[in-house]
């Protein structure tokens, strides 16, 4: 690992100042994705800007009462999401997803904001954010999930933009089904299904170069929320990863199976 300058600003504004104009600076949240990357010298930042000392990024709260959105601060850990009574009660599918990320030690450090900023194509949270139609709240704007994930490890975030929270509309039902890689525990395929008054959304992580929606299945499920619809899912071949450990045919098949299981878990 190359050495770098380490900063622990006390406010989001100070953090933005540190990032501004310095393309070689990187933000550090829980570090569970970033540290392994730095250790393998896959990234060599000049500066690391830690968010750990910034107040107000660790809250979980419901806005606007029982029907309002669930807002999760960027620095809330996976474990805190998984074990939060509020999340478990309001979006149990999200709590369960968070409880299946990595392993216990990783869940104690890894954060929702960090995961979304990193946008690993095999991470779990992107599926939840996209299926639940969440909004990424940054220091300067709100980004709809549909606009947020732009490519492999690519997001709509500006170079000096900082996620402060994620706002989740509360669905009627939701569930996540994951086929984990046996070694890394990342998702080979993970499918999140969310049923809301406005319809059904289905998001797939792991199988492609970025998280994506299954709109045909969403339409079928909006008409009739039944697991049999999943067997008709056709994943556009262009959406699937190639050259990895799993063949595209197997990935496409797993998408069907995980979609079915997520739908069943919603029942």
């Amino acid at each position: 690992m190359r050495n770098f300058e380490f900063h622990r600003p006390q406010s989001v504004a100070d953090a933005v100042t540190l990032l501004k104009g310095n393309d070689a600076a990187k933000l550090l949240a829980g570090g569970q994705s970033l540290l392994p990357i730095l250790k393998l010298d896959l990234a060599q930042p000049s500066d690391l800007v830690s968010l750990a000392k910034i107040p107000g990024l660790k809250e979980i709260r419901s806005e606007g009462g029982d029907r309002g959105d669930l807002v999760i601060g960027a620095l809330v850990t996976h474990d805190e999401v998984a074990s939060s009574p509020e999340v478990r009660q309001r979006i149990p599918g999200l709590a369960a997803l968070a409880g299946g990320i990595g392993d216990a030690q990783i869940r104690n450090r890894g954060t929702i904001g960090g995961s979304l900023a990193h946008a690993d194509p095999a991470a779990d949270y992107p599926a939840a954010v996209l299926a639940l139609g969440a909004t990424i709240v940054t220091d300067r704007r709100s980004i709809a999930a549909d606009d947020y994930f732009t490519g492999l490890f690519q997001t709509a975030l500006g170079a000096d933009e900082i996620i402060t929270a994620v706002r989740f509309p509360v669905p009627e039902r939701s569930a996540y089904a994951k086929f984990p890689h046996p070694a890394s525990k990342y998702a080979v395929v993970g499918v999140m299904v969310a049923k809301t008054a406005g319809g059904v959304r289905v998001a797939v992580t792991g199988a492609g170069s970025k998280v994506f929606r299954l709109t045909a299945l969403e339409q079928a499920l909006t008409e009739n929320f039944a697991w049999r619809a999943a067997s008709a899912v056709e994943v556009p071949p262009g959406d699937l990863r190639t050259g990895g450990e799993s063949s595209p045919e197997y990935l496409a098949h797993l998408v069907q199976v995980m979609a079915k299981r997520a739908i069943q878990a919603c029942q």
């Binding site: 380490f6 622990r8 550090l28 570090g31 540290l35 392994p36 250790k39 030690q105 104690n108 450090r109």
Partner: peptide, 10 residues
């Protein structure tokens, strides 16, 4: 936590 995935300064 995994102390290999955390900086001392953290």
């Amino acid at each position: 936590v995994k102390s290999c995935a955390m900086l001392a300064v953290e």
